[in-house]
Each structure stands twice: as C-alpha cells, then as structure tokens.
Design a protein around this nucleic acid. Structure first.
Length: 228
DNA sequence: CACCAGGCAAGTA
DNA sequence: TACTTGCATGGT
C-alpha cells in the first residue's frame, strides 16, 4: 500500500519534470476572457479542440461571446453559431443553462463568482444541466483560478498505461491521486493538466510506434507503441 | 473508408 | 445501481 503510494508520487513528479523540460510552460487556457474559457469548456466536450476554435471564432466575430448576448439569443440561433463544434443542439442548451446560472446566482459577474469557495462552487456547477465533473473542474481551475485538478481522457490513459490506476478507476479516484501527491497550487495544476493534453496530442494519436515521443520511456516495459 | 476528439444526460433492465 | 445510447462536425 505504502509501496503504491510512493510509486505514484514518484511517477507524478517525474512525469511533470519530463513534460516541463520537453515542452515548457503551456500558458493555458487558450482564451482571451474567462467567459471564453467557460464557453470553450462546454464546447470541447467529446470534441476536437480545432472544431471548438471555429465555433468560438464565429461567436466572437458576431459579437456574441458575452453573457448578456448569449442570454437573450434564441437557442436555435446559438446552435447555428456553434455548429462546427458538433453536438450543436445539445451544447446550445447547455450553454444557455450555464449562462442562466451565472446571471441568476451571480448577477452575471464572474468576479463575484470567483470570491466563492470552490467546494460550494463545484456543487453548484454540477447542478447545472450540461456540466459534469470535468467541465466543472475546468471552469474552476481555468476560469476561476481555483486549485482543482482537471482529469480528462488523456490523464486517465496516461495513468492507466503506466499501471498507476486500474481500469475501473473513476473520475474522483484519479483526481485524488493528483491532489494527494501534489501541492494544491493552481498554477501547478494548470500547467500539469495542460502538459498532459499537449503530450496526448502528440502521443496518444494512433500510430504504429511512438518513436520520438517524449514519454516513450514511460511506457510499461515491453510495450511498443501507444497500445490503443 | 473507418475512426476519433480535452463528456454528459437520459433511457433501460 | 450498472450499463447503453444519442448527440454531430471535421480532421487523419
């Protein structure tokens, strides 16, 4: 038990060092405003980031990437605007829910929201239609500067392939590994998650072998390629 | 052509 | 409670 504890701790520290050494700071989240982070967090659900950028650009160009505009826009018009991000009908409704929540509970003021403690904020966010654990935590960390570690598909894959978790580990189980071993520093959590995604885009794509991938040495012994 | 991408909610047994 | 399915575009 304490054996696994030590292995995990060492793994997390060494992976972070290797990623930071190879890629350097990522400067996440890629957005100009906090609202753009929140909208992007919903749009990127199960969706390639390139498609999300197309949708965000359309909203910005139309001058509609604002709480008041999003609140008054018909849901069908919003869906049309975000079409490139996929699942546009679902996501339009979800964005409407999030915007309504921020207007209702915080008078549309993200700075007011930022002053609230994150455990309460997370419970509130999880109660909003369309916001699950990852979206909630992305908003908490990247829009509201809270020290909350974001777990995504890349994170899960990374730990799974290196034998740090089992197949049935759930979101909070994985998250707990990070929060238990790392300082609760929002900038560390920010960079670490961003670096994992950066790695994932290089490394987790299907390809015959991972020659040249930075974490090749981190694959389980005897395993070649990405194993997908 | 098939497969996948920075999830989540709703339905079924 | 534990699975399964729908949602949809654009890149590789």
């Amino acid at each position: 038990m304490t054996r696994l504890f030590a292995r995990r701790k060492r793994f997390l520290e060494e992976v972070y060092a290797a990623l930071m050494d190879h890629y350097g700071p990522q400067g996440w989240w890629p957005a100009e405003t906090d609202l753009e982070v929140i909208v992007g967090a919903v749009l990127t659900q199960n969706t390639n980031w390139g498609n999300v950028e197309k949708a965000l650009t359309r909203l910005k160009t139309a001058g509609e990437l604002r709480l008041d505009r999003l609140a008054e826009m018909p849901v069908d018009a919003l869906a049309e605007q975000i079409r490139p991000a996929g699942y546009f009908n679902v996501k339009a409704r979800r964005l409407k829910s999030v915007v309504a929540f921020i207007q209702r509970e915080y008078q549309g003021d993200l700075n007011q929201m930022r002053r609230v403690a994150w455990p309460l904020l997370r419970r509130q966010l999880l109660g909003v239609h369309g916001i699950g654990p990852e979206t909630a935590d992305s908003i908490l960390l990247y829009a509201l500067d809270k020290p909350v570690f974001v777990v995504d598909a890349y994170t899960r894959r990374l730990l799974l392939r290196h034998g740090m978790i089992s197949e049935e580990a759930d979101y909070y189980g994985i998250q707990e590994i990070f929060t238990r071993h790392l300082k609760p520093d929002r900038r560390l959590f920010n960079e670490y998650h961003a670096l994992i995604v950066r790695l994932g885009k290089d490394f987790c794509r299907p390809r015959p072998a991972c020659e040249g991938c930075v974490l090749r040495a981190w694959l389980p012994k005897g395993k070649k390629g990405c194993g997908r």
